Amino acid sequence: MATIPTHVHLQPAQREFLEQQAKLRGTNVSAEVRSSIDLYRAGVDSMAELELLDFATRKAKDDLDATLATLDAGQRRAKAFFAEIEAIKAGSPS
């Protein structure tokens, strides 16, 4: 694909970030800028993405908390069951 030379003014931190991303991905700054523009054109919005990530994280925490509560209840029932078995073996039902 043909490219058009374009002059863009970046803040130092922006340029540094693009250079780091390019190094990580084995590309160059121009490719990173084009990729960012493509994402922007596709409607990828960082705030929307962060909101979705936040929602998913909170949902995952709620699900994990519910799973932990279920496991804790099961462990309590299992301990009570095994205590009752031990009591029966000892000849003194609880």
Rank of each mutant, 00 (worst) to 15 (best):
E84S: 11
L39S: 08
Q21G: 07
D54A: 15
S92Q: 09
A22T: 08
E16Q: 15
R77I: 11
R25K: 13
D72K: 04
K23E: 07
A73I: 02
R58G: 03
A56H: 13
H9R: 09
K79M: 13
T70G: 09
F17D: 12
P93W: 06
S35G: 07
Q11V: 10
Q21Y: 03
L53N: 12
L64M: 10
L24C: 10
V29E: 05
G43S: 13
E84P: 06
F55L: 04
L53W: 09
T27S: 15
G74D: 15
T6L: 13
H9N: 03
P93V: 11
L39M: 15
K61W: 02
A80H: 09
K23S: 07
G74T: 15
G43F: 02
E51V: 00
D38H: 02
D62R: 03
A83G: 11
A66F: 01
S92P: 00
A83T: 10
D54T: 14
A78E: 00
D65T: 11
D62I: 06
Q21S: 05
G74Y: 09
Q20W: 00
A80V: 07
S46F: 00
D54I: 12
I37T: 06
E32H: 06
T27K: 14
T6I: 07
H9Y: 04
A87Q: 07
F55T: 04
A69Q: 07
D72T: 13
I37V: 10
A80E: 08
A83F: 02
D38Q: 12
Q75M: 11
S36F: 04
D72L: 06
L71P: 09
G26R: 06
A73L: 12
T27F: 09
V8Y: 02
S46I: 03
V8T: 05
G74P: 05
T3G: 01
H9V: 08
D54C: 07
D72G: 03
D38V: 00
M1C: 00
R77Y: 01
L68E: 04
D63M: 10
A60T: 01
L52D: 07
Q14G: 09
T27H: 06
M47D: 13
E86Y: 12
A69R: 06
D62P: 01
F81L: 11
D54P: 01
A66R: 13
F17A: 13
M1S: 06
E19H: 14
K89M: 08
E51S: 01
K59I: 01
G43T: 08
Q14A: 10
V33S: 05
E51D: 14
E84G: 06
I88T: 06
Q20H: 05
R25Q: 13
Q75L: 05
L52R: 01
L52T: 05
V29M: 08
F82Q: 09
Q11P: 03
F17L: 13
A90R: 15
K59M: 05
E84Y: 09
D62V: 00
Q75K: 10
V29P: 08
A87I: 14
H7M: 06
